[in-house]
Design a protein around this nucleic acid. Structure first.
Lengths: 332, 332
DNA sequence: AGGTGACATGTAATCGATTACATTTTGCGA
DNA sequence: TCGCAAAATGTAATCGATTACATGTCACCT
């Protein structure tokens, strides 16, 4: 079943069939009708590989993420994919599993499939692999790596906005001794969040104390360990901000394990607003980062390069804001 | 950058390059060496579309799911994809968003991309679309739809195993009046679960009462509404089984809202073991259904057809078992 | 030395679309 | 009615690999 059969059945040439399918206005309505009828009657679907081969455009985008089972990503994928489908693009998703070998495989596959662009939404990025894509001038978009150049854009999350809101919120509630459980320091976005925390704590003239900033790992166990350190302090904080929700959930466990209450004894604010955070006990006050919007924005960023709107690459921002639930209350 | 350039650089023909890349043993080691060197030096990656076009095999599998943001799916996708990558296959994931138009689009894209097989893991399936795939003899695998025929396999979850365990568990704890919050009755898997519940309740000679079976919708609100109905009964149950975890979480809310305790007043068992269920308050006793295994099995099922191991299609089972956490305890 | 078979390599057709260019048809004005 | 531009359609080259078939090379045996 190929274009030739359709052409034969419609009594036209393959060129006309192709033109009809692609909405070329040169085809007369009468002919177009014949062609569509033939297509329908034969149940013909064009072969995308043949199409790509000759046209050089695959209408396929790569989306590289760390781990689809990490609750951060599914929504991002959804935002990206939904938008892509609407614009008649396909998406090839690849998990790296935080493993650079898999990352290399993913990039190789993207190139082999002639993707029209790649969104690399992992935190770790491999300079070498990026070069491989650059060499072929594949449009790219990154998440939070401040590298904008020819055909490379960047979506960056305005972490600071949400963190400022959080601190304002806690400040209003009367908290003055606020701790921060950070993410792993080799992660740029984690560094940005910590820096924002420091900046606003300073701005509000709250108590600054280096022991109030503890490093976690953006996972539950790390949050738990970090919180235990904070609880062991001579003067523990009355409120804790965390670098992501998973850390906050770990902290929550540590607090409960210590026989204390949230928010009664300690107020707690997460970051990301993963689905889970509305079901914790108590429901977590957290900073929402719309992953769907992130996905959508990444897609648009790619499209801007692909459609030649801006060949130079640009910076896109996605904002964050505080969602107040029940893990915060006035301090004692 | 194509095979011809490599051939020129290595001073061999394109056929030899192709043979080398595909590990054809006819190529002498010396020549192979030259070719690999040229490939490396040029940074050559083969064009998968050209490859697919001539060979007819795309090494691409379709995976159609309802909604990647539904916590049931990410792990399934992961299991499927990880296995696929290992076997050098690519995966094209499509969300239908429970919408038949999107489902049609997904199928169309799969066909246009000449996928070597499709795993359709949605609950709703469209007879017509399946025919479209059948017509092209694309291998398929479904989830829980008992349809096995030529080139169509089926992965089915042994829901009954976990439900039997649940009822045994509750029975041992002394519960005799056990309710069931079902899923929507137009969903086959939901019907299967309910039927299993009825069967084992009967087997254990527990109290049977049609008002103890309430229909939910596999979402939180439905579970909540259903639980409220149960609480309004003259004699409410002492334990409740639910058709999925989301329903259980809804039920949990309803119980708390009524000022009752879990498991003190009512024991509760979920189904699926989504990540969330270990973080509820109390952590949910639930039936684990390994989504990763489901994904892996779906992949293997497809491979069996593709590799011609069994052209006729087969039935694959994935089992379930009870995970006891803290939402169950002896009845009063 | 010549013949034979095994091994190695090359030539060119092929997959199914798109599209530049060529050709035919149509409509309209003179 | 004829001429000519515009519109419609057709012909064939092309994309980049695979692979059937053709050809070439070499070692070894008689």
């Amino acid at each position: 079943m190929n274009i030739k059969e359709v052409a034969t059945k419609a009594r036209v040439s393959t060129a006309t069939v192709s033109r009809t399918m692609n909405g070329n206005p040169l085809v007369s309505p009468k002919t177009a009708d014949k062609v569509w009828r033939a297509i329908r009657e034969l149940g013909y679907y064009p072969n995308s590989h043949a199409r790509t081969l000759v046209s050089g455009r695959s209408r396929l985008l790569g989306l590289i993420i760390s781990d689809i089972a990490n609750p951060f990503f599914p929504e991002l994928v959804k935002g990206f994919e939904d938008t892509a489908i609407q614009r008649d693009y396909n998406v090839m998703v690849s998990n790296t599993g935080y493993d650079s070998t898999r990352m290399a495989i993913a990039v190789r596959r993207m190139i082999e499939h002639q993707v029209d662009g790649v969104a690399i939404m992992t935190s770790e990025i491999d300079r070498h692999l990026v070069d491989e894509l650059s060499k072929r001038s594949v449009p790219m978009v990154f998440l939070d790596v401040g590298m904008v150049k020819k055909r490379v854009s960047n979506v960056c999350v305005d972490y600071a906005a949400g963190i400022r809101e959080s601190i304002d919120h806690l400040h209003e509630l009367g908290h003055r001794r606020i701790a921060f459980i950070s993410g792993p320091m080799d992660l740029k976005s984690a560094r940005v969040r910590r820096k924002a925390f420091q900046k606003f704590v300073e701005a509000k003239q709250l108590q600054q104390d280096s022991s109030l900033i503890v490093e976690g790992n953006h996972k539950i166990d790390g949050g738990q360990a970090a919180m235990n350190k904070l609880l062991a302090l001579r003067r523990p904080p009355t409120a804790v901000l965390t670098s992501n929700d998973l850390s906050a959930i770990g902290a929550l466990r540590a607090i409960h394990a210590a026989g204390l209450q949230v928010p009664g004894d300690i107020s707690l604010i997460g970051f990301d607003d993963i689905e889970l955070s509305q079901y914790t006990d108590p429901p977590l006050t957290t900073v929402r980062l719309s992953r769907q919007e992130l996905g959508r924005t990444a897609f648009e960023a790619l499209m801007n390069i692909i459609d030649g709107v801006s060949d130079s690459g640009a910076e896109f921002a996605v904002s964050t804001h505080l969602i107040v639930r029940e893990s915060t209350s006035p301090g004692r």
